[in-house]
Amino acid sequence: MYVFLCENSIEGIFTGVYDAWASRYGHRNIRLSLDTPDTYELFCEYIQVTPDLEKSRRIGRAICSSFGYEVYQDICQAIMAAGKEKKKALDKADCVYRTILLGFAMHDGHRVLTALGEPYVARVFELARTTNLEAHHLMGFLRFRELENGVLFSAIHPKNDVLPILGEHFTDRLPQEHFMIYDATHKTAAVHKAGSPFFIADVTDLNEALIQNVSAEELEYRRLWCAFFESIAIKARQNPKLQSQNIPKRFWQDTVELC
């Protein structure tokens, strides 16, 4: 058995898929795995995959052209999911690899993610759904504050790597604003300058002082929003359980009205 150890990123896993394929060891003798295992198994050869942009692009293009953009997107979103790796047999990287193999073996690869009877496809499907759901939640729940310099700033604590989805959404929505969405879990940020595309940057030390410096009107709009939020609730229908079911507590800290 050959085990390809991939970095936990789209580039890392796609490069792993590329290397595994190119190795010609035969798919049955290959496994993909995320990072270093705790214990090395006997009779396994471990191969460290170095993420490579060109290889990863090739796999991306192959998926797009053979299975369609939607499947490509779902697979990327599956990789962006944190995915608790307790299920050893269903390693995220390996599930992605097997799903891609199945797609190429199928008559119509566009339908690969409907083969939910296959456990690894079901896993990819489930992971993609997790990312998607969290991204959709945050499209609603994240809040911007206006800093003194007019930049809109937001901090979030997502489980999955949803920043690329959010960056795209808000760039389309607020094309003429400077904004920055800071992902405190992954220590990255989506940065957008008015009129340009956004990009993702690593943020190791955030300037705390700068982001506390809000504009003169900021507090007024927060007060107005909280007042609206209070008065829109119907007291006769009070239902805190339903409220925390609809907006899970972990999102509260980054809102304005609930924190």
Partner: peptide
């Protein structure tokens, strides 16, 4: 409806809930 690159705003078909009031209803 995609943004137009100039003004502000877009819409997405499933809609988005931005908050949930204490009666549990979606505030959009």
């Amino acid at each position: 409806r995609k943004g137009n690159g100039k003004g502000m705003g877009n819409t997405i078909a499933p809609g988005i809930c931005h908050a949930f009031s204490s009666d549990g209803r979606c505030v959009s």
